[in-house]
């Protein structure tokens, strides 16, 4: 073996850190007062230069070891040009979001929840599973006025043949209401009084408290552990809730880029969190899958799909819930907006 090969083997090939690029961009933005200098020169993008004003903290120094793909399927090569090809459209979309982001009147999150129920429907021998979907939107103004918008979408039998043999029923009764093959109407419900941002089911935060969340990963982690304990989670399960609540900081709450960066770093430092590499979300959007167990000793697993370029959460999937089925939460929108709350119509 010659010396150059020895040298190459000595250095090895570092694992691809899917968030390094975004972090470096954040550093450059920090060094240039939040604008990448060359973006002023990109046609039409001059004012939107705070591209993906997203996520990472200037001053972050360490890497994310647990967030490196552990298997050998890292695909970065000297010309990993997926970013070259898709970079621009993603950049544009992200820039638009970032431009609209800081100044809106309402914090708005629009999500599509899909549930594949474990329970079989139909008659004996002709059973099938159902997939139900709900469009859910939440708005909260800076003063704490809040609205929820909900629309039930059409329920879908997963095995159409079995459903036909069952007589093609259009409705199914379940404990809390029913499922229907027809979509429901969109409803907009205003909330009474001043609302806050919920962390899990427990603690409620004001916008000021959200803004005051620590930007240091360890401090943020400890703050979230307190929040988990405040929501009556049994002590044994506190750690298992940590990835989920950290993930919520990435898209459910109007956190600062610094806090989002800290949330990513805190996630990266958790031994149970794994990056599984490139994938697509349920709507076909490309992203990186990050997985973690949700309940110790049970097969329940959480799977975040994160946009490599903007670091936004695209979807959160939960699999392996005993006797329940698989749940998918697709994030359609997350950010500040000036659009008035309206009942959900379409995805």
């Amino acid at each position: 073996m010659d010396e150059l090969t020895e040298v190459r083997e000595l250095y090895g090939r570092p694992d691809d850190d899917p968030f390094a690029k975004t972090r470096v961009q954040a550093r450059m933005r920090a060094a240039t007062r939040r604008r990448l200098p060359w973006q002023a020169g990109v046609a039409g993008l001059a004012t939107a230069a705070a591209v993906a004003a997203a996520v990472f903290v200037p001053g972050m120094t360490t890497s994310a070891p647990a967030l490196s793909p552990s298997s050998g399927n890292s695909t970065t090569s000297p010309g990993n040009s997926t970013t070259v090809l898709s970079g621009h459209s993603i950049l544009l979309a992200a820039a638009t979001r970032a431009e609209a982001a800081p100044e809106g009147a309402y914090w708005h999150v629009k999500r599509l929840y899909t549930m594949r129920w474990a329970k079989p429907y139909g008659k004996e021998g002709d059973t099938y599973q159902l997939e139900t979907s709900n469009l859910v939107e939440n708005w909260i103004s800076k003063e704490g006025r809040a609205w929820s918008g909900v629309r039930k979408l059409a329920t879908r039998p997963l095995d159409v043949e079995a459903w036909r043999r069952d007589g093609s029923p259009a409705e199914w009764k379940v404990e809390d209401g029913g499922f229907s093959t027809s979509p429901g109407e969109g409803k907009l419900v205003p909330h009474k009084g001043r609302q806050k941002f919920p962390l899990l089911e427990g603690e409620q935060l004001t916008l000021e408290e959200v803004k005051a969340l620590p930007a240091d990963p360890e401090a943020l982690k400890n703050r979230m552990l307190d929040a988990i304990r405040a929501s009556d989670v049994v002590e044994d399960a506190v750690d298992d809730n940590l990835p989920r609540v950290l993930a919520s900081l990435l898209y459910e709450l109007p956190t600062s880029p610094e806090v989002r960066g800290a949330a990513y770093r805190a996630l990266a430092a958790l031994p149970s969190v794994r990056v599984e590499g490139d994938t697509t979300d349920p709507r076909g959007r490309p992203g990186v899958a990050v997985t973690f167990p949700i309940q110790q000793g049970r097969p329940t697993q959480g799977r975040l799909i994160i946009d490599r370029d903007t670091s936004m959460v695209l979807a959160f999937l939960v699999t392996g819930m005993p006797d329940k089925g698989d749940r998918t939460e697709v994030v359609l929108e997350s950010g500040w907006t000036d659009s008035e709350p309206v009942a959900p119509t379409a995805e």
């Binding site: 250095y11 090895g12 090939r13 570092p14 691809d16 850190d17 390094a20 690029k21 470096v24 990448l36 200098p37 060359w38 973006q39 020169g41 990109v42 360490t62 890497s63 970065t76 090569s77 000297p78 010309g79 990993n80 040009s81 970013t83 070259v84 970079g87 621009h88 950049l91």
Partner: peptide, 22 residues
């Protein structure tokens, strides 16, 4: 220049990680 960054980021970054750590 953003295309330059997109095109060469991974390669340059990996080289520096190899020499200095992440």
């Amino acid at each position: 220049f953003s295309a330059v960054f997109d095109a060469y980021f991974s390669e340059i970054h990996r080289y520096v990680v190899q020499r200095l750590g992440p």
